[in-house]
Design a protein around this nucleic acid. Structure first.
Lengths: 215, 215
DNA sequence: TCTATTATTATACAAATGTATAATTATCGA
DNA sequence: TCGATAATTATACATTTGTATAATAATAGA
């Protein structure tokens, strides 16, 4: 018995940061911002609380990192399925809408996370920057999809029109996402994606239910 | 100098409750849920902190009362302008949309409040009940407006269609409200109400920009 | 193998928070 | 005018919180 089990392991810095960020996200989602204390975060990440300060000089810094991480994750979840594959632009737009209104994006968990973080956006300039960036990124992607779908249908729109269509469609998606996540019991399965397709279709003037021409 | 100035005044219970609720709302709006501590609430309401427990047996009870109060207030703000007055049903629907997308409803303050409270909805059954009630109340009013406007235009819809239209229009309004309140700088003056009218109009199949027939 | 580095744990601390209880005092009715 | 009631203040207390510092030990490199 000359050798005793090591009391801890040194992990690569990025692993630990990632674990702490994931723990933070998990706690904000499940117990709200108030539940995300340094001690609970450390417990969830399976480290002692002192280690947090080794990687993040303050708790706010960790919260911000988690916010940024989650927002990027969410945009990727929605945008990824429509990138790369070779389908019509209309089908791309439809896929984008549907993806944002199904799990895992449209879930109580994501709503909680978003509401928890948003609460801090008001009083923190850096949080506001992240929020702003995420918003424009999402809306710009949507605008590009709409633009291409309209050109494809031989109904091109002016920049001003496109801007307004993107704002409106973004609102429909956000609103349905919110309703579904905040009160899941109020909707039937698949109802939200269906309503999303019909509404975005009505706004931009395309029939998104029609699968259309797959190239 | 036999008489000294009274050290405090006894107020009617409802006044004090109202003051405490208003103080809570104000703090949640401006400093987030974390800023709404019993001491700050008491200071804002100009009482000492012990008094809070005299009217609310726990802090959660006060928060809930504030949530309910604010939600009722918000629904009233949106619904009141369209009640009573004698205009066409289409104009009523249009007014409802516009009111929800202008100050004081569509403001950063209201978004902060809403996000702050929503954060507690996830883990508190009573908060969930209030949220649910408010949501259905708002959506039902909207559905009634849509129904009447469609009948008026000789385009009656089935209950299933109406339900979906109400969900979709509610989403547009909520989404635009959210976008505008969370990032006011991203929109031009009046842009949100205009987009709201155009989008809701496109979804239900009515031209809401047209003032229509005033009865 | 040994040493320096630093990741990690362990402990401490002051401030803030919700709640509880005791002490005052404004105010109403007799 | 005076005593009873309860609205209000004053004080206390145990917990929790974020942060800071000291102690330990895993691990890479010489």
């Amino acid at each position: 018995m000359s050798e005793s089990a090591p009391k801890f392991r040194r992990e690569p810095a990025e692993h630990r940061k990632e674990a702490l960020i994931q723990a933070t996200i998990s706690l904000v989602a499940e117990r709200g911002v108030a539940g995300a204390t340094v001690r609970e975060i450390a417990k969830q990440a399976e480290v002692t609380q002192g280690l947090i300060r080794h990687y993040f000089s303050t708790k706010e810094e960790l919260i911000m990192a988690a916010f940024e991480h989650h927002m990027r994750h969410m945009t990727n979840l929605t945008a990824a399925p429509v990138a790369g594959i070779h389908i019509s632009h209309k089908a791309r737009l439809a896929a984008f809408v549907v993806t944002g209104l199904k799990p895992p994006v449209a879930t109580p968990r994501f709503i909680s996370l978003w509401a928890g973080f948003l609460n801090k956006v008001r009083n923190d300039a850096q949080m506001r920057v992240i929020h702003e960036k995420t918003y424009y990124d999402f809306r710009d992607r949507l605008e590009a999809l709409i633009k291409n779908a309209l050109i494809e249908a031989n109904k091109p729109a002016t920049p001003t029109q496109l801007r307004r269509l993107a704002i409106a469609c973004n609102a429909v998606i956000d609103g349905l996402w919110l309703e579904g996540g905040a009160l899941p019991s109020a909707f039937k399965p698949n109802e939200l994606p269906e309503i999303g397709l019909a509404s975005v279709g009505a706004i931009v003037g395309l029939d998104l239910d029609d699968p259309g021409d797959l190239s």
